[in-house]
Design a protein around this nucleic acid. Structure first.
Lengths: 335, 335
DNA sequence: GCCACTAATGAAATCGATTTCAACAACTTT
DNA sequence: AAAGTTGTTGAAATCGATTTCATTAGTGGC
């Protein structure tokens, strides 16, 4: 009904016998309008079912109160779901943005290039960007950062990143995994993951450097190039087939990979945790009810979302912010 | 840089020595402008780094090319992630919207009431709505549908729903599960799920009515009221404790619940599939690599997303559309 | 050479809000 | 009673595009 022809501010003004500016002020709760007229305007607006035209408002304000959120994984049909953790992160960001009265524009897969992002920003479509996962596209992010648009990134901190990064302490996570596995009496540790990804690289480094401090330990690496369960499983089977000595401790870059590895070990006739101890990453929901229940490094996606959003808001307000690391925690379960 | 002060169409017009309307036409590829001037304008626009102000455009067009997507689960911190299938559905919708050049506005949890939705629509913020999951809020959707706004819903079809629903054939899914379990020689079947949800109700009905056709079968029901793994597990343990005869076949409303049930059975000393056969629902990614690998009813989230979006687009174009059911498929694995 | 017609362009109106600035009324102050 | 406040209100400009309508130049017909 009213959709065909929404009520405008002019009509409210006419009906309330005041001018358009007065209506605008009344609705925005300005002090410049007398309480009597304000009440009258509000009542009339309510009766007519008036709602502000947000596009007109955005045009005038030069601000959209909309944040674009870009999920790396959404663009790759093959492995988009590989990490349920990202979905939790999205939920956290969504909640936090809601608290700041910001709308969340989920960027479509085919927009995933600098040029289109730039368009979105400059065309006043959005006020800022949140990138969930820097993945292998870090160069693109660096390129994009040159535009000096408000942006924050979930991922790994580098020495001098040109944008604000929020992420868990990947190095510290690696350390925790190393300590745990060592305490379990494991000495031959295998890392599983694609260290081309900055985040994953630091998890590996944390593991490696911690183990170096002990004698008689060895660290090897199984380099994956896909996030999917199937491909991880296959890579693991191949690896275990060709390798001489089986590891007795494994640290995987994600819980999904952990599941794949456990299944591959099973195929090789090895039991977790009897023969091999294993630590995953993320504490994604299914990690806790996999069989066996996976020991993992927990990152709090809600805390992360909140932090990402609050940083971005400060950037939009032209304030200085720093990259920040959120706490991680070792969740000891059955593996 | 340019963010502080984006280039406007007027500036392009001045630089190209033409008028504003000509620039507008040139950029939109109108036939009304000569090829020579069009090329010139395009070149100048490129040089100045011009991008259209989408908010001005939206105001003028009275169309935002933005679709609001509402995810039921995002609003409940407790169980928002219960169903990874929803995330896949979201990815499908995102992809499909991208193909239609529509932006995707993910509605914030605190917007989840009719009034705010109405505001969004009437304020020209979005052109239509996609609800992923009708859940227990079906009354709210019906209320919202009265506004006659373009909307489509992922969920269960009813006799006469006041809006367009796309969903899988839940009754048929129930039938498939029943047939499978019967063929496995199972006779005492338990359904697990909250039948207050329309979708889940029909899955139960499909199961029940199919089994009724065979003699010497029994159907019982474990009513859940939460989607979370933990609570499902607990309910199952309690149920198995108090019930006289254990079922030899189980059909769960989701794969997450299936995992919880399997773990609960294990605790009771029962093996899947030796003692009990089990069919889940959704074929969520982890179903295929749970241990044991879960037999389930597959719904294609990409097909679903595409269908939802194409229906919505037709509704926005004022065309008639019908509710539709997408195919489901029994994926036989180890359970 | 004049008229009709087409193609290309621009002036001005428009979308619906917000904001600046001026105007006015009602009070104080002296 | 004149001047200065203070508090409310409205006219008009503005945000940046699109669209209508009028205008001009150029082409062909007779």
């Amino acid at each position: 009904m009213s959709r065909q022809n929404p009520v405008t501010m002019d009509e409210v003004a006419a009906a309330a016998n005041v001018s358009k500016p007065t209506v605008s002020r009344a609705l925005s709760g300005s002090e410049l309008v007398s309480p009597a007229t304000r009440d009258k305007v509000l009542k009339v607006a309510q009766e007519l079912g008036y709602t502000v035209n947000r596009n007109a408002q955005k045009l005038r304000h030069k601000r959209s109160n909309t944040i674009a959120v870009s999920i790396d994984f959404l663009s790759h049909r093959q492995n988009h779901i590989s990490d349920p953790f990202i979905f939790e992160l999205l939920a956290g960001v969504s909640e936090a943005l809601g608290e700041h009265n910001q709308d969340l524009l989920l960027t479509a897969p085919n927009h995933n290039n600098s040029n289109d992002f730039q368009q979105m920003l400059l065309s006043r479509g959005v006020d800022g960007f949140i990138f969930l996962g820097q993945g292998q596209r870090e160069d693109m992010l660096i390129e994009f950062a040159k535009l000096k648009s408000p942006m924050v990134v979930w991922g790994a901190k580098r020495k001098k990143e040109p944008y604000c990064v929020v992420g868990s302490d990947n190095f510290g996570g690696g350390q925790m995994a190393a300590d745990y596995l060592y305490q379990q009496g494991r000495r031959n540790i295998l890392f599983v993951g694609n260290t081309d990804h900055t985040e994953i690289y630091w998890r590996f480094k944390g593991l490696e450097e911690t183990l170096k401090q002990h004698e008689e330990t060895s660290v090897s690496k199984l380099q994956l190039d896909s996030f999917s369960y199937e491909s991880s499983y296959q890579s693991a089977v191949d690896y275990f087939d060709r390798v001489d000595a089986m590891p007795d401790g494994i640290f995987t870059y994600s819980d999904t990979a952990a599941m794949a590895i456990i299944m591959a070990l099973k195929k090789m006739g090895l039991q977790v945790p009897t023969d091999v101890s294993l630590v995953g990453y993320n504490d994604q929901p299914s990690a806790g009810f996999f069989n066996p229940r996976i020991t993992t490094i927990r990152q709090d996606p809600y805390a992360a979302g909140k932090l990402l959003v609050s940083k971005l808001m400060r950037i939009i307000e032209q304030k200085q912010v720093r990259s920040e690391t959120i706490d991680t925690e070792l969740v000891v379960r059955e593996t």
